[in-house]
């Protein structure tokens, strides 16, 4: 388990981390969210000793992280970077070996992973000869190759097309399922919502919200009520609870209290005409996020 405990870090007058604490368990896939400048990258870099916090601790399985722990971690930094003129297979083998793999094992894993990422035929190409998307794949491979126990990815979905998003999602889920602790930062909240059970939201250097995505959404005091209607008199929606966001003769979407009695509402709507559509939903992750950040 990765544990960040009360991290503080300032750069001059800028506070990057302000008592930031959270944990990532083995086998979990956690989305790490926060607006620009919230301290996500600083927190992630602190795991790899690339930032030294002014105070607080970062530990793995209850022990402070040292160089030997980091060999079992995988990291994809926000600023992508590998050796531009090095062949990609050689590059992966090199990083695998830096992580303590033997030569034969590193070569085998490299071949497997390049195959999995659809880059097998590019193994002997130099990194700079690859497209941006493929370079990103190699960067990911560098983080994944040695089957790390902890995987930290800074904006791994940035710049990916929907197909790339889907295949990366699959990869990350598989790693978490096989027992790795996986945490990644992202601004694509719809992706996070579809992929993660858990999220950590930080704002101004401190954790503002964390937990199960479904719980976080349902703990909101708001619900969205959406009704499609045929054959109702105009103004039919005024008898519904809450304040409408969109309203017409045959459709209404409104915000209602979470504790509204749903059967009563449904019965009332049923009296007004023929229901073509009915939904009652908590806010999306994106809305929860905005609520927290704007607070």
């Amino acid at each position: 388990m990765l544990e960040l405990r009360d991290l503080n870090k300032t750069y001059g007058s800028v506070t990057a981390l302000d008592g930031c604490s959270f944990e990532i368990k083995r086998g979990s896939l956690v989305g790490f969210l926060g607006p620009n400048g919230a301290g996500k990258t600083t927190a992630m870099r602190s795991v790899f000793g690339l930032v030294t916090p002014d105070s607080g601790s970062v530990s793995w399985d209850g022990r402070p992280i040292t160089a030997s722990e980091r060999l079992r971690f995988g990291y994809m930094p926000e600023q992508r970077g590998l050796y531009p003129r090095m062949q990609i297979a050689q590059q992966l083998v090199y990083f695998g070996r830096l992580h303590g793999l033997g030569k034969a094992e590193a070569s085998r894993l490299t071949a497997e992973l390049l195959d999995e990422l659809g880059l097998a035929d590019r193994a002997k190409d130099r990194l700079e000869e690859l497209s941006h998307g493929n370079q990103q794949r190699v960067q990911l491979a560098t983080a994944l190759l040695h089957n790390p126990e902890l995987l930290v990815l800074d904006e791994p979905f940035g710049g990916l097309d929907p197909i790339g998003v889907a295949s990366l999602s699959g990869l990350l889920q598989a790693r978490a399922a096989s027992g790795a602790a996986v945490v990644f930062s992202s601004h694509q909240l719809d992706v996070v919502e579809g992929l993660c059970e858990e999220v950590v939201v930080i704002n101004r250097g401190a954790v503002a919200l964390e937990g199960n995505v479904r719980d976080l959404r349902s703990s909101s005091q708001k619900r969205y009520l959406e009704v499609g209607m045929r054959g109702a008199e105009s103004g039919w929606h005024t008898s519904l609870p809450g304040s409408p966001l969109v309203a017409s003769d045959h459709h209404v979407r409104s915000v209602v209290d979470a504790d509204v009695d749903l059967p009563t509402v449904l019965a009332a709507v049923n009296e007004l005409g023929t229901i073509t559509d009915f939904s009652f939903e908590p806010p999306t992750l994106s809305e929860v996020f905005r609520e927290v950040v704007n607070r």
């Binding site: 790899f48 690339l50 980091r70 060999l71 990291y75 930094p77 600023q79 970077g81 590998l82 990083f95």
Partner: peptide, 9 residues
């Protein structure tokens, strides 16, 4: 920027 990856290891 490869130094970030190397120094993470």
């Amino acid at each position: 920027r490869v130094v970030e990856v190397v120094l993470g290891t």
